[in-house]
Design a protein around this nucleic acid. Sequence first.
DNA 1: CTGAAAGCGCTAACAC
DNA 2: GTGTTAGCGCTTTCAG
Lengths: 351, 351
Amino acid sequence: MNLTLEDIGRLAGVSRSTVSRVINGSNSVSVDVRARVQDVIRRTGYTPNAAARSLVSGRSGVIGLLIPSRVHSIFEDPYFPRLIQGISAASNQSGTTVSLFLSQDEVEEAERYMRVISSGFVDGLIITATRMADPLMVRMAVADVPVVMIGRSEIGGISYVDVDNRGGARQAAMHLCGLGRRRIALVAAPVNTIAGLDRLNGFVDGLASCGLALDPQLRADGDFTEVSGYRAMRQLLPMRPDAVFAGSDTMAMGVLRALREEGVRVPQDVAVVGFDGLAASEHSLPPLTTIRQPVAHTGARAVYILNDLMSGAANPPVSEIVPVELVIRESCGARLAGAEGAAGRRVDKTD
Amino acid sequence: MNLTLEDIGRLAGVSRSTVSRVINGSNSVSVDVRARVQDVIRRTGYTPNAAARSLVSGRSGVIGLLIPSRVHSIFEDPYFPRLIQGISAASNQSGTTVSLFLSQDEVEEAERYMRVISSGFVDGLIITATRMADPLMVRMAVADVPVVMIGRSEIGGISYVDVDNRGGARQAAMHLCGLGRRRIALVAAPVNTIAGLDRLNGFVDGLASCGLALDPQLRADGDFTEVSGYRAMRQLLPMRPDAVFAGSDTMAMGVLRALREEGVRVPQDVAVVGFDGLAASEHSLPPLTTIRQPVAHTGARAVYILNDLMSGAANPPVSEIVPVELVIRESCGARLAGAEGAAGRRVDKTD
DNA sequence: CTGAAAGCGCTAACAC
DNA sequence: GTGTTAGCGCTTTCAG
């Protein structure tokens, strides 16, 4: 089973160089020789040794996906699976393989990651930016391999792809305003994450464009979990909001639960809008109006940008903002209020 | 940045062999030389080249995780994230890195996977067994690398680790019987998956041990999705069951939704038990009684078994069944009926 | 168009 | 203890 180029060459009656040329698609090989060699390769099931190849070529064909998810709960969210799926699909398509680096203990593992990276094991790196100025991220970012971050980075010179968190949140706020809501509360995503901060700012933008300001009393903070959304909503209830924008669908689930528990009607008494577009939001009670972000697509874009960086087709920093879309369901009350009636799901693009 | 052993040797005034010895912890190096070399290594930030290393050693330090998840929906489930987490953590601990192979299009990608595997890129493989006799699985299983399947395999000679699906389902059925329910319906997980089949069989076992048989009218099949659970329950409603065992928590969510929609009280009118122990089951309305499986632990066990296989410390097939536990919440009515009252969550181990 | 030869960076005998 | 030497399997000049 451990055939080498030499073996194939012998079997086909040519030198190993010729076999190598055939494998690498060089066009300076005669038609019949090529056919003969390919035949032997097929019959023997020969596969070039990856290590030898990458030793001489200097490239491994591997991209590393680094997820500094000390926040365990974040993994209960379907966000990462979808991201991984998008990255994996795009990476398959471009002929590279994905290696996973999930850090539980950032400090301890940073060393190991640095080693793996500078050993030439990966040709490039995709890093999910969770917290702002994550120390691990910073170290990786200056490593000697091309890097693309998922999520806007504050580290200069680093390429990234992010979804339009700010625009989406603004749109959510404006949508609620447009429906006549005035006491619009915010269940904020963690503001030590860039996504959380952008969503907060976008929300404030949206209110402003309707002539409203965010009453601090109408803001409660969560940590992306269902429970945190629930608690935040309980805290908000006495303030009598007539609408709530939750910084993530998962937190919105908690919001709905708190509301249901208190017998508050959604959307009649309180309209709710989430952010993410998880599958679960479709089946909540009532179905959740939300800002949908194309997670898999974001991952795929990161791969393509990384490819460009690795091949030299582009130079860092490259950045890209992926648009999001408002998905109108029952929880915001638009169907109740508007003339649309049961006209099905309406979708508005951000830009 | 591209230092070699030779460079380090020169800087430390020794040969490259000595440096190699220091790096690999050979004890036949004098104390001072070792110190000198280590110092140079630290100062220069030298890291051995992975490709060169694996070329000569014949081992890459990579394990492949192969997920043939053409069933896209399966990725909406937190199952895979948790599995990946467990595998990644265990793999970190044992100093290997994980490469991901998600196949969307099995036929097309099988070729590619085979190539990666026989190129020596991975030292071993963990394969999640979704469907029975998956053709991709079969091919991989006979490849020339150690393999561990997640989920009981029907392919002879293959190592695997699985959770006690059968025992868990049996326990669920008995629990419901013990609560006095007699018309116990089943929302079955797909029976073309081994897990689905085992849960079905375990459920029948459990009924039998209470002197009951599964009325075919009281069985409806789902596909692990929420919607399929919802549809199955709607189909079951006319049969007036007084309890339902759903083959997965996600389907149980659909069951609860259907019940809620019809104004059927849970657990008073219909008791519900799920399977998996997802976080979401904790926050459902009402909180779901379920069979919890330790997903991350299962993944970790797979890694350890694979390590044993790779090192020759064990020979295939090695198999292991991980116990599950009944988590009693509100949906089964035990707290309503029993003397436990609000005595908190009670947990029963399977074995 | 094809073969011979020189390494890629490392480990592991084998000498000293 | 430490250095020398021979490859691991491949790509890539360089001749012819």
